[in-house]
């Protein structure tokens, strides 16, 4: 049934730390790997090794340049997948009942057996979190690895979404955002986690932690303003005359031969 539940028992979701993410795409690759071998249709690619490769992914890492009013621009890597919205517009538009939000944990899923591949849910999602599978013709989206997190066959530490498990920097956190005493909720409160596109009224469960300011002009760092250093000097501190070590030996050896 594509009406939304009034409330859900838990609100499982992800918290993504934009301060920590280094943009390595490990989460996206790991997601693709897990979900292409999962219970549903594989996540197909078309023309994978050709001139126009394309395919269905459930998690994609954007990169933004943020230019402050004063100061150097900062790179922010930005992973994005389904936010498992409380007021999920993708669910209510679905005509077949294939899209639904689970009452017990709030995960938004697609039943591939009943989906007719109309694509309306992808149009309804403001975040671009749903992609049509180019081969199976059914809608694909993040399942929050529902086939991992409750999977008794996996060791305890693997019962988290594949992206969370794969992230080498620990930028992705998984937990119950409906419980204010959970670690993940405390993290959000501590770091000022926020909603994406709050104006869309979707009430996303996933939260993003803001990046800290990383760089400043040298003049603002203090101590360097009088003597701007030469970067080339830092890279090549030794000149031919004073070179020691291997380069010095080489220099002298060549001199002898010459």
């Amino acid at each position: 049934m594509t009406t939304l539940p009034e409330t859900t028992g838990r609100k499982l979701g992800l918290v993504i730390d934009l301060d920590t993410c280094v943009g390595c795409h490990a989460c996206a690759v790991s997601c693709k790997e897990w979900n292409t071998g999962g219970t549903g249709a594989p996540l197909a690619d078309t023309d994978a090794y050709g001139a126009d490769p394309s395919g269905a992914w459930l998690n994609r890492v954007h990169t933004y340049e943020v230019q402050p009013q004063n100061g150097p621009a900062q790179m922010v890597h930005f992973p994005k997948s389904c936010l498992h919205c409380e007021d999920a517009p993708c669910v209510t538009v679905c005509p077949t009942g294939a899209s639904y939000k689970r009452v017990e944990d709030g995960i938004v899923l697609v039943n591939e057996d009943t989906c007719m591949g109309c694509g309306l849910c992808a149009w309804a999602c403001p975040y671009g979190a749903r992609e049509m599978d180019p081969v199976a013709g059914v809608m694909k989206k993040c399942t929050l690895c529902v086939d991992r997190i409750y999977n008794q066959n996996l060791p305890e530490e693997d019962r988290v979404p594949a992206c969370v498990r794969a992230c080498p920097t620990g930028a992705r956190h998984f937990g119950d955002l409906g419980d204010p005493s959970s670690d993940i909720s405390k993290l959000v409160a501590e770091r000022g986690g926020y909603d994406l596109m709050p104006e869309q009224g979707t009430k996303p469960v996933n939260q993003y932690l803001p990046p800290r300011q990383r760089d400043a002009w040298a003049s603002e760092l203090g101590g360097c303003d009088s003597a701007p250093f030469n970067l080339a000097d830092l890279a090549e501190p030794e000149t031919a005359d004073n070179a020691g070590g291997f380069l010095g030996w080489l220099d002298k050896a060549l001199e002898r031969i010459g």
């Binding site: 954007h62 990169t63 933004y64 230019q67 402050p68 621009a73 922010v76 596109m197 104006e199 300011q213």
Partner: peptide, 18 residues
């Protein structure tokens, strides 16, 4: 608003995911 990064400055897509 889409990235929530407006508080830091002007946001521009630098690289698409694919």
């Amino acid at each position: 608003s889409a990235t929530g990064l407006g508080f830091m400055g002007r946001v521009r897509s630098f690289e698409a995911p694919h």
